[in-house]
Amino acid sequence: MSPVPNGVRASSLDAGWIKSRHSNAEGNCVELAPLVDGAIALRNSRDPDGPALVCASAEVAAFIAAAKDGEFDHLLKAGA
């Protein structure tokens, strides 16, 4: 478990935030940043000072694998 707590102010982290090249011009995207302890922080790009969600790298890897497999596609179709 990361010593960085969930909900910490994202801008307080000494982290290099990465935005997807698939982000749109309105800034509706999620940014990720690797933390020193190996955890990964996520933040809403529209609220860079807002709270960060901190996950273990294995959790993020599982999420990315599931997204690549289309396991969450139904969530996008529900809002369309």
Rank of each mutant, 00 (worst) to 15 (best):
Leu13Thr: 04
Ala25Gln: 09
Asp49Asn: 13
Gly70Arg: 02
Asp73Pro: 04
Arg43Trp: 04
Ser45Thr: 08
Lys19Phe: 11
Ala62Ser: 09
Gly7Leu: 11
Ala66Trp: 00
Pro5Tyr: 13
Phe72Lys: 00
Asp14Glu: 11
Val30Arg: 04
Phe63Cys: 01
Asn24Arg: 08
Met1Ala: 13
Arg46Met: 13
Arg9Ile: 13
Asn6Tyr: 11
Ser11Leu: 12
Ser57Cys: 07
Ala61Asn: 06
Ala66Asp: 07
Glu71Trp: 12
Leu76His: 14
Pro5Thr: 10
Pro5His: 08
Val30Lys: 05
Ile64Lys: 01
Ile64Tyr: 01
Ser45Leu: 05
Asp37Pro: 06
Leu75Cys: 08
Asp14His: 08
Leu32Thr: 06
Val4Cys: 09
Asp47Lys: 10
Asn6Ala: 13
Asn6Val: 10
Glu26Trp: 11
Asp14Pro: 00
Ala39Asn: 10
Arg21Tyr: 00
Asn28Leu: 14
Val60Ala: 00
Asn28Val: 07
Leu53Ile: 15
Pro34Ala: 14
Val8Met: 12
Ser45Pro: 02
Ile64Glu: 02
Ser20Gly: 07
Glu31Gln: 15
His22Leu: 10
Ala10Met: 09
Ala66Val: 00
Ala66Met: 03
Gly38Ile: 03
Ala67Met: 02
Ala39Leu: 07
Val54Ala: 03
Leu35Lys: 08
Leu35Asp: 09
Arg43Pro: 03
Gly27Lys: 03
Arg21Thr: 05
Leu75Gln: 08
Gly50Lys: 04
Ile18Ala: 13
Asp49Cys: 08
Asn44Glu: 13
Cys55His: 03
Ala61Met: 01
Lys19Glu: 15
Val4Trp: 10
Arg9Tyr: 14
Asn6Cys: 14
Pro3His: 12
Trp17His: 05
Cys55Gly: 00
Ser23Pro: 09
Lys68Trp: 01
Leu75Arg: 11
Asp14Gly: 05
Leu53His: 07
Ser12Ala: 15
Ala41His: 02
Phe63Pro: 00
Leu75Phe: 14
Ala62Gly: 03
Ala33Pro: 03
Leu13Met: 07
Asn24Trp: 08
Leu35Val: 05
Ala78Ser: 10
Ala52Ile: 04
Leu53Cys: 13
Ala15Met: 08
Ala67Glu: 04
Leu53Arg: 08
His74Thr: 02
Leu42Gln: 12
Leu42Pro: 01
Gly27Pro: 04
Pro5Val: 12
Arg43Ile: 01
Glu26Ile: 07
Glu26Phe: 12
Val60Ile: 13
Asn6Gln: 12
Ile18Met: 13
Ser11Ala: 15
Ser23Gln: 14
Ile18Thr: 13
Arg46Asp: 05
Ser23Glu: 14
Ser20Thr: 10
Asp14Ser: 11
Lys68Glu: 09
Leu35Ala: 09
Leu53Ala: 14
Arg43Val: 02
Ala15Gln: 05
Cys55Tyr: 02
Leu42Phe: 13
Ser2Lys: 04
Ala61Asp: 11
Ser20Gln: 06
Ser2Asn: 05
His22Phe: 07
Ala41Asp: 02
Ser12Gln: 14
Asp69Met: 09
Ser57Ile: 02
Glu71Tyr: 09
Ala62Lys: 02
Ala52Trp: 04
Ala10Ile: 08
Ser12Asp: 15
Ala25Thr: 06
Met1Trp: 06
Ser23Leu: 11
Gly7Phe: 11
Ala78Val: 08
Gly50Met: 07
Ala33Leu: 06
Ala67Val: 01
Val30Tyr: 05
Arg9Pro: 15
Met1Gly: 12
Gly70Gln: 05
Gly79Met: 13
Asn6Asp: 15
Ala56Ile: 01
Asp73Val: 04
